[in-house]
């Protein structure tokens, strides 16, 4: 562990913005909310944020991404992979854990270079949570802290940041701030420990379940009459709970041509299983026609599917879906609590 004074840290960030060829990203205020965006100045970096509107997955799996370019006259297709090397400041532990889950999906299925190359070319600078959104239940999900998934990890210990180094990439980045780094003593280590000890108090205290019960509870509730219908009744099928989720990665693929009809691109765009046409095929057959079926599907993905496949619970408790669902019905704590309490929904 190292430490860096806050003023020195700001200088370091400003120097990176000025001199590093990579794009420097950081959490910034977006009116009364927060978002990851390119940094113009270290002043704008808000390491005290609670949660961002979208998770940082947008840098590895962009909202719209060109996979293939083609020329219809020549019948030629070329694969493309737009990789912008980035340094990303301010990722909370739950998002780092979500990124590690995404890595598994894109590595272990088929080694998807469109995702993986963007990951390789990014440096992830995490930050321990100074503030938590009122919706977050990361502590319950065991994602309020992490020992892995970051290149560097910052903790605010007053006038300094404690810096933990998680990888070679991280220590290389730190090289550039070498002269400003302090060695840490017992005092700093103690402060980091205290910081983490106080974390649980920052989160809501209503979750009643243990994350590793979820696969079993979901299997029990899969066929429960009325349960999903009841919970999904006010669903607007707007996909918000998918799009804002750090572990959702479903996508659509479509061709977009320019009007001269000769050139075009095959795009992959974010999609969501809550959207009505997600499982629809030609001939108007829709395998999840009812909103209750789609609502259940999302929970199965979060609480069981990734667990069966990789041993991970795919809800990291960030609370984004809970907060951003307009009719306020997407809060996983609510649904998981109902299961735990044994409600049958009717």
């Amino acid at each position: 562990m190292k430490a860096i004074g806050k003023a020195e840290f700001s200088n370091f960030v400003d120097e990176l913005i000025a001199d590093d060829p990579r794009e420097v990203i950081g959490v910034q205020a977006k009116s009364n909310k927060f978002a990851f965006d390119p940094l113009k100045s270290a002043e704008d970096l808000r390491l005290d944020y609670d949660v961002t509107i979208l998770p940082p997955k947008k840098y590895f799996m962009p909202q719209r991404e060109t996979l293939v370019k083609y020329n219809t006259n020549e019948g030629e297709m070329t694969a493309v992979n737009e990789v912008i090397p980035r340094i990303i400041f301010g990722i909370h532990p739950y998002d780092l854990i979500a990124i590690q889950q995404m890595d598994k999906v894109f590595e272990e299925t088929h080694s998807d270079e469109n995702y993986l190359a963007k990951r390789r070319e990014s440096v992830l600078v995490g930050v321990n949570m100074k503030n938590a959104s009122e919706w977050s239940f990361a502590h319950t999900m065991g994602t309020a802290t992490t020992d892995s998934g970051y290149d560097l990890m910052l903790t605010d210990i007053g006038d300094k940041y404690a810096v933990e180094i998680g990888s070679v990439k991280g220590s290389e980045l730190l090289e550039e701030a070498k002269s400003q780094l302090d060695d840490v003593g017992m005092e700093e280590i103690e402060k980091v420990r205290e910081f983490k000890e106080e974390l649980p108090d920052k989160f809501r205290d209503d979750p009643e379940f243990d994350p590793f019960e979820l696969p079993r509870l979901l299997s029990e509730y899969y066929g429960k009459d009325g349960f999903w219908e009841e919970n999904a009744e006010d669903c607007l099928s707007c996909g918000t709970c998918n799009l804002v989720c750090p572990t959702c990665y479903c996508f659509d693929v479509k061709d977009v041509n320019d009007i001269t009809l000769t050139e075009g691109e095959r795009l992959r765009t974010w999609d969501g299983c809550m959207l009505e046409a997600f499982a629809q095929v030609a001939g108007d057959e829709n395998f999840r026609e009812e909103k209750a079926a789609r609502y259940r599907h999302r929970y199965m993905r979060k609480g069981r599917y990734m667990y069966n496949k990789f041993g991970d619970i795919a809800c990291v408790g960030c609370g984004r879906c809970s907060e951003q669902c307009v009719p306020d019905i997407a809060d996983p704590v609510d649904v998981f609590n109902q299961m735990k309490e044994g409600t049958n929904g009717i």
Partner: peptide, 9 residues
């Protein structure tokens, strides 16, 4: 799908 999808993106 509804405008929220693009709005979130």
């Amino acid at each position: 799908y509804p405008v929220c999808v693009e709005c979130k993106m």
